[in-house]
């Protein structure tokens, strides 16, 4: 039950985009077409669902203070939390490489349309953010997996909704200065207002 709550929270209440404004770069850049956004959203879900639990295991068994106790009593006092950033990033980068290879093999069309943004998932702040939030909130392994999946799905819904809006806006007579990114920023803000409906819900 707790895991389900975390998934729902990740999608609607603690949405990575609209509640924390993390992962904006790919959110703004890869949302011109629904099909591409759909692919990137799926890739983010996939990467998050894998990296968050993997990072959890590493954090619990190696990085946390006293977690090296399994190696012997001499290691009981070692605290490697200062390594969190670098280790988490390394794990994420490795897994993104894996995803890239899989997508290239399975769907070359999607691989082509995602372009540079697929490797850029590695530095997507939403991914590292999730890993750090997971540590901060003291999740268990199951909860961490649910959290990864939930926040990935939140990103997925946000980006396909934005892409659908932008496809529709192709036919609009937008003021010159706002064409492209300017208007997208405005839409993101307005979507944020709409998503505010869920902030404050206690599950």
């Amino acid at each position: 039950m707790e895991a389900l709550n975390i998934v729902i929270r990740g999608i609607f209440i603690d949405n990575m985009i609209f509640a924390y404004f993390l992962g904006m770069c790919s959110f703004l850049a890869v949302s011109k077409k629904v099909s591409t956004a759909f692919g990137l959203g799926l890739a983010v879900i996939f990467v998050l669902t894998i990296t968050v639990p993997v990072n959890w295991i590493i954090n619990e068994n190696i990085l946390k203070e006293g977690s090296l106790a399994w190696m012997g009593s001499a290691y009981e006092t070692i605290d490697l939390t200062f390594m969190q950033f670098i280790i988490f990033i390394a794990v994420i980068a490795a897994i993104v490489q894996l995803v890239e290879m899989i997508i290239e093999k399975v769907s070359p069309a999607l691989y082509g349309s995602l372009g540079i943004f697929l490797p850029l998932i590695a530095v997507n702040c939403a991914i590292l953010g999730s890993a750090l939030f997971m540590v901060q909130r003291d999740y268990t392994l199951v909860e961490a997996t649910a959290y990864g999946f939930g926040s990935g799905s939140g990103f997925f819904f946000a980006i396909i909704a934005l892409a659908a809006i932008r496809e529709k806006l192709k036919y609009s007579n937008v003021p010159d200065g706002l064409r492209g990114l300017g208007l997208t920023m405005l839409i993101t803000g307005l979507m944020g207002i709409a998503f505010k409906s869920f902030i404050g819900i206690v599950l």
């Binding site: 396909i160 909704a161 496809e167 207002i193 409906s197």
Partner: peptide, 15 residues
């Protein structure tokens, strides 16, 4: 907020 929220998703539903 429900209407605003669905306004955001209406283009996606259409799509």
């Amino acid at each position: 907020l429900a209407i605003l929220f669905m306004n955001v998703f209406a283009p996606l539903i259409d799509y």
